[in-house]
Simulated assay, not measured.
Amino acid sequence: MIQPDEYHLAELNVGRLLAPTDDPRVAEFMEALDRVNGLGKRMPGFIWMMEGSGEPGTGNTENNIGDDPQFVANLTVWEDTPSLERFVWGTIHRQFYERRQEWFELLGEMHFVMWWVPKGHKPTLSEALERLKHLRAHGPSDHAFGWNEVKEATMWRSHGCAPVAAE
């Protein structure tokens, strides 16, 4: 994977909640969204995040996919892969990632994708879903890839990414 100096890293992670966002079964996850997202926004290398309404405790869950309010997406842009990796596995985010099966359904297909965007570009959810669709259909390439294709991603390799559920 080539990372030209004029590009940033975009990532999309999708998942389907086990219950509606106001259900007690996902309450712990929903209550932590503002804290975890706020931490991400303060991390070195953070550039941009797709936002919801800004209503406390909703995070990006209003950015659902299709007509299913439980099928939610997280879309962010980072300076580079190490910046994203430090946030995912080097902060409290990791604890929520490791418990994702408590709040999310097991998805039978790829639910995470990364790609390079020109600096200043804020991808749309539609654009991101197209990248995920491309990865599912054609496998990893410069157009759409996962952690396995990023050689400098060492934390991912040591923590493992069992495909249990999206986060």
Rank of each mutant, 00 (worst) to 15 (best):
T21V: 15
P44Q: 15
E85K: 07
V36P: 12
V26K: 13
F71A: 08
K133V: 02
G120D: 00
F112R: 10
G52E: 08
M1W: 05
P4W: 10
M155H: 05
P4Q: 12
G120T: 00
E28F: 12
R16T: 12
M110T: 06
R86S: 15
E105H: 03
Q3M: 14
V26F: 02
N37L: 05
F87G: 00
A10K: 06
W48S: 06
M114V: 03
P163S: 00
E149K: 03
F29N: 04
V14M: 06
V117G: 06
H93Y: 03
L132P: 07
F29Y: 15
R136Y: 05
E149M: 03
M1G: 06
E98Q: 05
G66C: 05
P44F: 11
H93S: 07
G90S: 13
M114A: 12
R35T: 09
S53D: 14
L106S: 10
P24Q: 02
Y7C: 14
T124S: 11
T61E: 08
I47Q: 08
D68Q: 11
D142H: 11
R16Q: 05
K151R: 03
V117D: 08
P56V: 04
R16I: 08
L129T: 09
S158R: 10
C161I: 13
A144T: 03
M30H: 01
N63C: 03
H93T: 11
W116F: 04
E6F: 14
R86T: 14
Q3G: 09
F46W: 13
E105V: 05
E167C: 03
V77T: 03
F29M: 03
L18R: 13
P44W: 15
Q95C: 13
E130W: 11
L9P: 02
A137G: 09
M114L: 15
V36Y: 14
V77I: 04
H111C: 09
S126F: 09
F96C: 06
R136K: 04
G45N: 07
N60R: 13
F104W: 14
A19V: 10
P56N: 12
G15N: 02
T81Q: 06
W116C: 02
W103E: 04
D142S: 08
P4H: 10
E28K: 10
G146Q: 01
E102D: 15
H121I: 07
R136S: 01
E127N: 01
N63E: 14
A19I: 14
D5C: 12
V88H: 01
E98F: 03
A73S: 15
D5W: 12
G90K: 11
N37G: 08
M155G: 06
A73N: 12
I65Y: 11
N37C: 09
F112Y: 15
G160K: 06
V26S: 11
E167P: 07
E98W: 02
V164Y: 14
E102I: 01
E105S: 00
R35K: 07
R99S: 14
W115N: 05
A144L: 00
A137T: 00
A162P: 08
M114E: 14
D22P: 12
S83E: 09
W89H: 14
A32R: 09
